[in-house]
Amino acid sequence: MTRLIATYAIGLIFGAGIVLSGMANPAKVLNFFDFAGTWDPSLLLVMVTALAVTFAGYRLVLRRPGPMFETGFALPSGTRIDRPLVLGSATFGVGWGLSGFCPGGLLPVISTFRGEVLWFTAAMLAGIAIARLARRSLTLGLAQAT
């Protein structure tokens, strides 16, 4: 139970950071990327600060034998720069540029039930489902071909 209460509190800290920083406000996000127009540099500070705190904090945490409530750290282990990573990231960038929402900026404000937020959420979930199906059939196709 302590584990879930702690996790809930961490979610609340993350959500508060997202809301305070402006990451959940598409107008602000899109202006950060609009260097040739109404540029708003705020998001640069959000990313640099979040990265600096995480960089320093990870160095302290990952020195420990393991996390508080689990037996080990679950760190992504892949190192290969492959086609899905490159094309997926480019696709995500186009979507972020069209809408102004990234998944981290979106999740905390789904609970506002704003119309545009719900439209984006439904479309994003559909996109995730489509990509998972496509990836599964790609993997199956490769398995059958060999």
Binding site: R3, A6, T7, I10, G11, I13, F14, A16, G17, I18, V19, L20, S21, G22, M23, S42, L43, L44, L45, V46, M47, V48, T49, A50, L51, A52, V53, T54, G57, Y58, L60, V61, L62, R64, G66, P67, M68, F69, E70, G72, F73, A74, L75, P76, G104
Partner: peptide, 24 residues
């Protein structure tokens, strides 16, 4: 607001790694 918000996002990321060993 941007700096404080970014610090909270970073803090949450560090805490999730410290408690559950997970990437935020």
């Amino acid at each position: 607001a941007a700096t404080a918000g970014g610090a909270l996002i970073g803090l949450a990321s560090v805490l999730l790694m410290a408690t559950l060993g997970r990437v935020m």
